[in-house]
Structure formats: C-alpha cells, structure tokens
Amino acid sequence: MSEAPDDMTNPDFQNLWQSQPKEMTVMSLDQVHTRARAFKSQIQWRNRLEHAASALVVVVFSGYAIFLDPPLMRLGSILIVAATLLVSLILVVRGRAAPVSDGAEDCLDFHRRALIRQRNLLSSAWLWYVMPFVPGFVLFMIPAIQNSAGDKGVTVWIYLGIALVFFGGVIAVNLLGARGLQKEIDRLEG
C-alpha cells in the first residue's frame, strides 16, 4: 500500500513484508465464477457425504426394525432412525446458517459471531446431538440385557457404563471445546 502511514511507520518491516515476491497469478473473472460454482458443489458434495452416513444408519436400523424379533428392539431401532433423521436435519439447517462475510461487518463482529456460533453448537450438543439417540439406545439395549446369560445386575451396569462413557465422552469433549471458545470470546471482548 502506498498510503502514507502515520508516525507508527516502521519502514524496515513494512518494506520487508511488502517486497515479498508475488507467486500466484491473478485469477481471471471466469476462474472466479468457476470457483464460486465449484465451492457451491463442494458444499453440496459434503452434504451428500453426511447424508450418506446418515442413510447407512437409517438403512441398518430400518432393517433391525423390520427383522429383529423383540418388539422393544424394533421400537428402539425406529427411534434411532428418527434421531438420525432429526440430527441430519439440524446439521443441514445449521450448516446453512454458517457465517458468510460481507464487507459491511467489521472483523471483530465477524470473529465474535463465528466463535459464538461454534460455542453454541458445542455447548448444546448434548441436547441436539446426544439426547435424540438416548431413548432408542435404551430401548434397544433392554432386550439385550434381559436375554443375557448370568447376573443381570452386572450386565445392566456394563451397558450403563458403556452408555455413560460414550455419551458422556461426547458431551464432555463438546463442553470442553465450548469452554475454550468462550475464553476466546472473552478475550475478544476484553
């Protein structure tokens, strides 16, 4: 930039920085248009991938819902399918709400908005990402516990432990992430 800086100028570092060799060729207008379209299809492809993973869960548990014998397992499978569809829908809706920059918003506001959005996603993950699966998981496990050989009390504790480690782990990781983001937000506002 050739704009005359004020008395804070340090020509050594600014010259060092601005005299970097230019490596990349300028994008033509056609290239910009093409990349804008490619970016859109990249997002569509990522969404398809997420939907494919959800579809796999839906297919497997739909199969369980049809072919498994214990009614509770069937009901549990149906609830897991419903939870998968719900989480997929939430991901799509929240993905659409990802912050996009326009020049009307300064960097501080944009940065804060991006961090708050990420923090809210993580801090509420227990509600929208974990809880929907809990009822189906519980119903799915009850027949497995009932049909298990040996001490049923021990089996209940084992399943409970697995559920706590899995669901609790997901919640803890997300809450820790949210706490880290909150610290960043506080620093921005401080």
């Binding site: 930039m1 050739s2 704009e3 005359a4 800086p5 004020d6 804070m8 100028t9 570092f13 600014q14 920085w17 601005q18 300064d106 960097c107 501080l108 506001d109």
Partner: peptide, 16 residues
C-alpha cells in the same frame, strides 16, 4: 500494520 495502513483505517476494518 505491515501493509502500511494507518490506525484509523485499521480501526475501521477491524472494529477495534
């Protein structure tokens, strides 16, 4: 700063 912008321009861009 390294691009040589003045403090007022930086404040406008960053929101600080």
């Amino acid at each position: 700063y390294l691009e040589g912008l003045d403090a007022a321009a930086m404040a406008e861009i960053t929101g600080l």
